[in-house]
Design a protein around this nucleic acid. Sequence first.
DNA 1: GCATAAACTTGACAGTGTAAAGTCTAACTT
DNA 2: AAGTTAGACTTTACACTGTCAAGTTTATGC
Lengths: 197, 197
Amino acid sequence: MTAETKTTHHHGNLKEALVRAGIDLLEEDGLDGLTLRKCAARAGVSHAAPAHHFDGLSGLKVAIATEGFRIFSNYLESAAKGIDAPIDRLRAVCRGYLTFGLTHPGLLSVIFGSGLAAQKPDNREGDYAYNILRSVCAPFIPEGQNPQIIEIQVWSLIHGFTLLYLSGEFGCPPPPIEDGPFDQIIALLDRVGTLGA
Amino acid sequence: MTAETKTTHHHGNLKEALVRAGIDLLEEDGLDGLTLRKCAARAGVSHAAPAHHFDGLSGLKVAIATEGFRIFSNYLESAAKGIDAPIDRLRAVCRGYLTFGLTHPGLLSVIFGSGLAAQKPDNREGDYAYNILRSVCAPFIPEGQNPQIIEIQVWSLIHGFTLLYLSGEFGCPPPPIEDGPFDQIIALLDRVGTLGA
DNA sequence: GCATAAACTTGACAGTGTAAAGTCTAACTT
DNA sequence: AAGTTAGACTTTACACTGTCAAGTTTATGC
């Protein structure tokens, strides 16, 4: 019916519908609200239908994480768009990381919390997101040193900050991003930029 | 029977036994293995007994997190013991943070992943652990600035690194701590020490 | 047109959290 | 000392979960 690819038999493309339903449930009710049976019901199929497309619940989570990485990459890319100065690009991408986490906390936990790195070694969508981070880190790599050094530092910093902020450990609610403690890691981010000096 | 406090009626002190069983289950089978009914069975009581001591599963997790923070604090304290130079203390505590995460991944996820900060605002055990981090950060606070700045930076850095390392995102298995990428965040940790200069 | 394979349904089972009611034990009251 | 009361625990039950084993329908291939 639609202009989309409708090749399979009954439903159309149930696989995509289930992933979409799963993401919606994740955003509505959090990680506990993500259920195989609820995804099936929302897609209009019986409760056992997902088994023909995913390897159980963990398989669905891997598929959701794959799609989640695309959304994640969008946040990182659009945050850096139109910004030229390397240090400003680094700041912007990190801010995009945080914004994604605050906007899609359920997706974030599925992306990094489902052992996806172990279950899906060839994770192109994840690599794509990582390469965005890598590209904004590249200008700050000290000459002749391992590029991973900077990437791991920046990634750890913004990842930890996002998760701690999200879990309320910093004692302030998520809403105020602008004046929040995010500005306080900018200083360290700037230091990352001087590591090669 | 034992020298422990046995004041309550039937079991002795079921509350502690349930928390202990929960921690054991967590270490054996991970977060998915932590179940009210399994905790009850391991403590030798019926499956509905925990309801009289905790507010459901989330209540048990809060209790486990409270005990987990004590264990966590032990790692941080014993890591800093006998080390005098401020920068070495900072390094050692961060290494203790990582070691705890690698040794007790289930506890780590319960501590920071059960919304404990929201459910238990007066978290003394958590504050105690935070104060250890705070004390090793203190020597590096720039004059006249908000102490939180350094703490948030260091905490974000080591927290993010631990979680990413644990989930295999860095592409190397957890076992080798010594020569792993941990040494690569030491450089940034050292930069934290020069922020005031 | 028919065999075959895939998509999906139906039914069942073990395991989960949780609530309501009942039983027992210890402590408290008079 | 006997009876009352409150708490600890059990039993029973229910809704919900993931998962398996069969069926049933539908589209594809020959």
